[in-house]
């Protein structure tokens, strides 16, 4: 669609620009969530996290996301790169392309969670409140990333002649002059809706770790759905599912376990909270 934007003599990659925009808007959303609110709402984990901590954990997560996404991509690309290595046909330009282009979101997500976990361990910060604070920023930034995919023409949909079909006239990746399903825009819209749901859900009373569980569950379902309309078939697949669908299945099962554990421990948590609320404040001698 518009893989590169030319501003004067500077050429900007649309995908990178949209990812950057998404990253900054994600950081902005964290600032909104961590700023001190006048409304007392003790159920929100994000209230107990300072902005600087959340921002630094977010940056660790972004670094982990980049490394994880690249690592997963390299693992996928290995079968295609190895023959080139054997033929000694791997030029420095191709190596630069492989290192700077191509990312796998699920690898990025795992890397991002690992990054936030490393931050929490390194600086002795509680992991669960940090993760709960950051998680709505993930679908928000991801939604912008999918718009970037649409502009670059990657992650394109299956051939489709119906209404709302799109035709790429300028792309290095997508098949040109063919009507395709706009799967990138569909996923982007669903991700915006998911981010809105998480923020609204967080405003109401909820249980610890439930935000993370809901994200895993709903994104897993979204990805299972959108994978059905993808047309870039060179991604990995096993049996009747693509690699991403298999990872989605794992995410959905993990989410169900998290949410069910929350439900079973909800009674004990409520009892403890009531007990604390009834106790008089401890006298400091």
């Amino acid at each position: 669609m518009l893989p590169y934007m030319q501003i004067g003599s500077i050429r900007i990659a649309s995908y990178g620009a949209m990812v950057l925009l998404g990253g900054y808007i994600g950081a902005l959303s964290i600032w909104f969530r961590t700023r001190s609110s006048n409304k007392p709402n003790n159920n929100r984990y994000s209230e107990s996290i300072e902005f600087q901590q959340a921002l630094f954990a977010y940056l660790y997560g972004v670094i982990g996301l980049g490394l994880g996404a690249k690592l997963f991509y390299l693992l996928q690309a290995l079968p295609l790169v190895l023959p080139l290595l054997k033929q000694e046909a791997l030029s420095s330009e191709l190596l630069l392309d492989i290192l700077t282009k191509g990312f796998v979101f699920y690898g990025g997500f795992i890397g991002g969670v690992a990054g936030v976990y490393i931050y929490s361990r390194q600086f002795k910060k509680p992991f669960a409140p940090l993760a709960e604070t950051l998680i709505p920023a993930v679908p928000l930034a991801h939604a912008f990333g999918r718009i970037g995919c649409f502009m670059a023409g990657c992650c394109y949909g299956m051939p489709y002649e119906g209404r709302l079909s799109i035709v790429f006239e300028l792309s290095e990746v997508a098949p040109l002059h063919i009507h395709l399903f706009p799967v990138q825009l569909l996923e982007s819209a669903l991700l915006f809706a998911l981010a809105a749901f998480l923020v609204i859900y967080d405003r109401n009373a909820r249980k610890p770790r439930s935000l993370f569980g809901w994200y895993l569950l709903l994104y897993g379902l979204i990805r299972m759905l959108t994978e059905l309309f993808r047309g870039d078939a060179l991604r990995g697949s096993f049996l009747f599912f693509s690699t991403s669908q298999w990872i989605s299945v794992v995410l959905i099962i993990t989410a169900i376990v998290i949410l069910m554990r929350n439900t079973s421990s909800a009674g004990r948590v409520d009892e403890q909270q009531n007990l604390y609320a009834q106790q008089p404040p401890t006298t400091v001698v």
């Binding site: 990659a13 990178g16 191709l94």
Partner: peptide
């Protein structure tokens, strides 16, 4: 470093999820 990473994102990072495309482009 944040500014540098931002510049990297808009300058050199592009999306090619189809693993075969890079090889084809090369």
């Amino acid at each position: 470093n944040l500014i540098a990473i931002s510049l990297c994102a808009i300058a050199i990072v592009a999306c090619v999820t189809c693993t075969g495309c890079i090889i084809t482009m090369a």
